[in-house]
Amino acid sequence: DFYRCHTCNTTDRNAICVNCIKKCHQGHDVEFIRHDRFFCDCGAGT
């Protein structure tokens, strides 16, 4: 499962994972996106 962060203006080409929300995007306006054509390269392994 992935998310888009409207606060940081993520686009259709990138998304964030749950670990990104916990570490970098906590309290931001995020939108849940189940699956799409992207991956998270944060290195958290999710």
Score class of each variant (00 low, 15 high):
V30C: 07
R13P: 06
C17K: 02
I16P: 00
G27H: 05
C40A: 00
F39V: 15
H35C: 15
N9G: 12
H6E: 01
D1C: 00
C42N: 01
A44D: 15
H35I: 07
T10P: 13
T7M: 00
C17L: 01
F2E: 04
I21D: 03
V18L: 13
H35M: 10
C24V: 14
H35R: 12
G27D: 14
K23L: 10
C5H: 02
A44K: 12
K23W: 05
C24Y: 15
D1E: 14
F32T: 13
C5A: 00
T7W: 00
C5K: 05
T7H: 00
Q26R: 13
I21G: 01
D36I: 04
Y3I: 03
Y3S: 05
D36K: 09
C17A: 03
C17V: 00
C5L: 00
K23I: 08
I16A: 05
C5I: 00
D29L: 04
Q26D: 15
F32D: 09
H6L: 12
T7Y: 03
G43V: 08
C40H: 04
G43H: 11
K22F: 13
C5N: 02
A44E: 09
F32W: 12
R13D: 09
R34Y: 08
N19V: 07
C5Q: 00
T10G: 14
F2M: 10
V18M: 12
D41R: 09
T11W: 04
T10W: 05
G27V: 03
A15T: 10
G43Y: 12
G45T: 05
Y3W: 05
I16V: 12
T10C: 07
I16Y: 05
C42T: 04
E31I: 05
I33G: 04
H25I: 00
D36T: 10
R4Y: 13
I16C: 04
R34M: 06
I16S: 05
T46Q: 10
G45H: 11
R13L: 11
G43D: 08
T46G: 04
A15E: 08
C40Y: 05
D1M: 14
T46W: 04
R34E: 14
C5V: 00
D29Q: 14
D12Q: 15
N14K: 14
C40Q: 04
V30Y: 13
H28V: 02
H28N: 01
T46N: 04
D36L: 07
K23Y: 04
T7C: 02
I33Y: 05
I16K: 08
F39L: 10
C20P: 01
G43A: 08
F38N: 11
D1I: 15
E31W: 02
N14F: 06
H28D: 02
R34F: 09
H6F: 11
C40D: 05
T10Q: 08
A15G: 06
D41M: 05
F2T: 13
C42H: 10
C8K: 00
C20L: 01
H28F: 00
C8T: 00
N19P: 04
D36N: 14
I21Y: 12
F39W: 09
K23R: 12
A44M: 11
R13I: 12
C40L: 01
A44T: 08
T10L: 09
K22L: 06
H6T: 11
G43F: 07
A15F: 06
I16N: 03
D1G: 12
K23N: 10
K23S: 12
D36Q: 13
T11L: 08
D41N: 13
R37Q: 15
H28Y: 00
A44F: 11
K23T: 11
F2S: 07
F38L: 12
C17Q: 01
R34W: 06
R4A: 06
F32Y: 11
C24F: 09
H35N: 06
G45K: 08
T7S: 08
Q26V: 14
F38D: 09
H28C: 03
F2R: 05
I21M: 08
A15D: 02
I33Q: 12
T10D: 09
N14A: 05
N9S: 13
C17G: 03
H25C: 01
D1K: 12
F38R: 14
F39A: 15
D36A: 13
K22M: 04
T10A: 11
D1L: 02
F2P: 08
R37V: 12
C40F: 00
D36E: 10
V18G: 11
H28L: 00
F2W: 11
H35V: 13
T46C: 06
N9Q: 13
D12N: 13
N9Y: 14
E31V: 08
F39P: 13
R13A: 14
R37G: 14
Q26H: 14
R37N: 10
C5S: 01
C8Y: 01
C24R: 12
A15N: 04
C24K: 12
T7A: 03
N14W: 02
K23F: 04
E31H: 01
Y3H: 09
G45C: 05
T11I: 12
T46A: 08
R37W: 11
E31L: 03
